[in-house]
Design a protein around this nucleic acid. Structure first.
Lengths: 134, 134
DNA sequence: TACGCAGTGATATGTTATAACACTTCTGGG
DNA sequence: CCCAGAAGTGTTATAACATATCACTGCGTA
């Protein structure tokens, strides 16, 4: 069963539209960029509207927050729970999602730290942006 | 040679004081928290003062930025260049610095992405904060 | 002296995020 | 049907984080 099919998933108009906007963009979008789109659709024009929708989508695995950019992307594989890792192009803000074993397990066990979540974000240049600048 | 001994390291009063403040805190501090301390010392009271100092310290490996918290910590091992990884306590904001091989090399090579920097930040509970809440 | 550079001071503004409260809508139980 | 509680939304205000820009200073050096 995919996340989107779960009976307890309440995809209200605002949440659905935010998810669509993210899916259309193929890159990380800031909350206020999304809000501008939402406003154009008459679906809300104040920050809490978009932040609430984004929180919901992130909690339910349909979107991810990119800490490095203070921005959001649609999840590339909503069908399974996973610990995502990202490669972020610093030029075009495109985001490639990948999966990786959490690399801090050993250090955490050694120190008694209890890990709940791990953020892994690589920054660099995507293939398209490696062209020599004119 | 440690970073602090490098001849080209210009540790001006503002920069030195910011570093001291970070070293005293043992936890991540927001730029405006640091700025408040700086102001109390008569060393500057506008945001650019502290952001400039922090940029310098981060560039020169004496401090790190914690993306997850939009905050900063002193580097635990300024003696060598390294790709840091962090374990961040969500309760007390304490930060434990560790080192880890960048886990996305394989995926990056496979896709042609050129990684310049990798952020690894685990969030959870430090040993002290795992006590049962009263 | 004149110049350039790094650092600093100061003002203003841009960007991201949340607190707080009122109101509505949905849902299940009597 | 009616109610109560939970979930969602609308709205205002503000907190928190970050940068652009320009002026000025001190210092080393050509």
């Amino acid at each position: 069963m995919t996340h989107a099919e779960r009976a307890d998933l309440r995809l209200t108009p605002v949440r659905r539209r935010v998810l669509e906007i993210l899916l259309e963009s193929h890159a990380a979008m800031g909350a206020y960029d999304i809000l501008a789109r939402l406003k154009a659709d008459g679906l809300g024009d104040q920050p809490p509207v978009v932040y609430r929708a984004l929180s919901y989508l992130v909690e339910h695995g349909l979107a991810h927050r990119i800490e490095r950019l203070n921005a959001f992307v649609a999840c590339a594989r909503p069908e399974d729970a996973h610990d995502p890792a990202f490669m972020i192009c610093r030029t075009c803000r495109s985001v490639h999602e990948s999966t990786v074993a959490t690399p801090l397990d050993h250090a955490a066990r050694a120190s008694g730290f209890e890990i709940e979540r791990t953020v892994i974000e690589a920054e660099g240049l995507c293939p398209a942006c490696q062209e020599p600048a004119p």
